[in-house]
Write a protein that binds this DNA or RNA. Sequence first.
RNA 1: CAGGUCGGUCGGGCGAUCGCGGUCCUGCGUUGUUGGGAUCGAGGAAAGUCCGCACUCCAUAGAGCGCGACGUCGGAUAGCACCCGGGGCGGGGAACCCUCCGUGAGGAGCUAACCUGCCGGAUGAGGGCCACAGAAACAGACCGCCUCCCUCACCCUAACCCUCUCCCUUCGGGAGAGGGGACUCCCUUCCCCCAUUGGGGGAAGGGCUGGGGAUGAGGGAGGUGAGGGUGAAAAGGUGGUGUAAAAGACCACCGGCAUCUGUAGUAAUACGGAUGGCCAGGUAACCCCCGUCGGGAGCAAGACCAAGCAGGGACGAAGCCAUCUGCGGAUGGCGGGAGGCUGCUCGCCUUCAUACGUGCCCUCUCAUGCGAUGAGAGAGCCAGUCCCGGGUAGGUCGCAUCGAGCGGUGCGGCGACGCGCCGCCCAGAGAGAUGAUCGCACAAUGGCGCCUGGUUUCGAUAUGAGCGGAAAAACACCGCUCUACCCAACCUACAGCGUCACGGACAGAAUGCGGCUUAUAGACCGGCCUGGGGU
RNA 2: GCGGAUGUGGUUCAAGGGUAGAACAGCGCUCUGCCAAGACGCUGGUACAGGUUCGAGUCCUGUCGUCCGCU
Length: 118
Amino acid sequence: MQRRFRLTRSEDFKRVRRSGKSYAHPLVVLIALKNEESEKRVRVGVAAGRTIGTAVTRNRAKRLLREAMRPLIPNVASGSDLILIARPALVAASLEEIRQALLDLLKRARILHPAHES
RNA sequence: CAGGUCGGUCGGGCGAUCGCGGUCCUGCGUUGUUGGGAUCGAGGAAAGUCCGCACUCCAUAGAGCGCGACGUCGGAUAGCACCCGGGGCGGGGAACCCUCCGUGAGGAGCUAACCUGCCGGAUGAGGGCCACAGAAACAGACCGCCUCCCUCACCCUAACCCUCUCCCUUCGGGAGAGGGGACUCCCUUCCCCCAUUGGGGGAAGGGCUGGGGAUGAGGGAGGUGAGGGUGAAAAGGUGGUGUAAAAGACCACCGGCAUCUGUAGUAAUACGGAUGGCCAGGUAACCCCCGUCGGGAGCAAGACCAAGCAGGGACGAAGCCAUCUGCGGAUGGCGGGAGGCUGCUCGCCUUCAUACGUGCCCUCUCAUGCGAUGAGAGAGCCAGUCCCGGGUAGGUCGCAUCGAGCGGUGCGGCGACGCGCCGCCCAGAGAGAUGAUCGCACAAUGGCGCCUGGUUUCGAUAUGAGCGGAAAAACACCGCUCUACCCAACCUACAGCGUCACGGACAGAAUGCGGCUUAUAGACCGGCCUGGGGU
RNA sequence: GCGGAUGUGGUUCAAGGGUAGAACAGCGCUCUGCCAAGACGCUGGUACAGGUUCGAGUCCUGUCGUCCGCU
């Protein structure tokens, strides 16, 4: 996932976490917010708390989330900011399971592109 | 070969596809959080942050005190506390042998290589503490032992007294037996009673005479540190001499200490010699003393830019001299204010001011009926520093190739390490880059099969082992005993091969480096020690 | 990343190097017609591992956990 599709500012994180809607899954939690500014790009932030484990497992969880999210970005409605929060079960899951969980969450949030909605 | 132990190296490989970040080059009607190409891209611990540095700011990093760290010797290093090599004291340490315990299975001890803890000072500064127990926790006292004195009690009989018998004899003496028993005697003074020139009793003072005891109790003076159930620890140990009782008081041996000294070693130290007197408990990871070292904070240090906000409080000033001068001033020195040197003092450093006035604000008084205004007086403000509060969480640098750098190699050193030569440039993010999927091979783990291996029994046996013939030893020879290879039965393990499944240990740089500590599946190589076998 | 503080029963806290204690909680028993309160008794602990010491909760070292501050 290239850096231009990433959510980096601390201010953005605060705004999404405060005002966005959250959707839960056993593997991952999705927080989504429509960006009111002129930004047309989809931006994704990834987080893994200390309950996940040590630095190695936290980094691996974030890499898995980014790799699973990467092909889905063109299908997400433009101008939305997303935050993905890893849960402990995610470390043992495979890439396909994570991708399926993300698809499920994006459908529930109704921000998937209309072409893939069907 | 087996077991033990130590050190070093590696700690995942190769290929394909899809992706991520940095640097360099390059493209663009779009100048970008952009496209393309090349190249590079986690560790031995990146971890813990326990030490030491570099670097940055505080002043250029001072002195003394305080505080902290360290403390055997020598070395290495830019530096370091646990790095390297030694020394001393202690602890651990497999099998065989040996010793002990056990009927036995077995257990314990001893022990090689090796591992590991500690290391200035408690005689030689001083203070504190040593619970409980114990007489006592560091030496004084107590119990006890011994000597002397006093008092009391008790016992003995030869002073003395009484009774009886006998004798000599004459108003006394002697002998024997029994009983009492050291109670006394004289003088002076005072008091009381009977009573009247006296007698009796008591108290105090003085004098003369007066035996013994191995007894007991109490008190006093001294000697003693032998003994006193305890305790973690009790005043050198054992044996003797000695004494009133005792003691290194003295002697022999042993142990320890101090001083001097010999040999080996750079030294710590080791092995000795001579002399001395037995005094000297433990604790300094309690305070402390001695020596060495250390200024403080830390890359969120710090520098610059952008953006942004709100102020408040404390302290608070004084000039003078010299030189130059374009006469406005400038520089320097002394002095003053505020602050700093992350605890204190000294000393030092930084900075500010010399303006100041017809200034501003407040209060009071006077002039005028009031106000305005004017005059006077007083206090404050106007420099600077510090503290508190508020705002910012953006960017560039520090900071990513020149370093205590990395890889080879040679030399010196036991080693830590040092010196030389050649080659190389080697991560740099900022919600934080190394990942995902598939395939192959090799290790490891588990299952199955094959090869086989192990145990036991019977039977014999030597070229093996033991004993004897046999005499100094060895070899050979002969005899006896035991046993391996061999045969059979039972059970299939490690390793190896084939196949299937599973599938990488601990762990993710954030300014850099050295050391330490902690986590770590496994693989490979080597050193040392012990035991067995072969040549 | 850097710096600092701290760890004692289930909880909140004590304890000069010398037997680990208090309150609440838990359990048993008593009281009551029953419950609560009360009275009595009991269980349960120094984060872990080494060291110094005759003896460590305390002193020293390492490990682990928790909390706080620094732009």
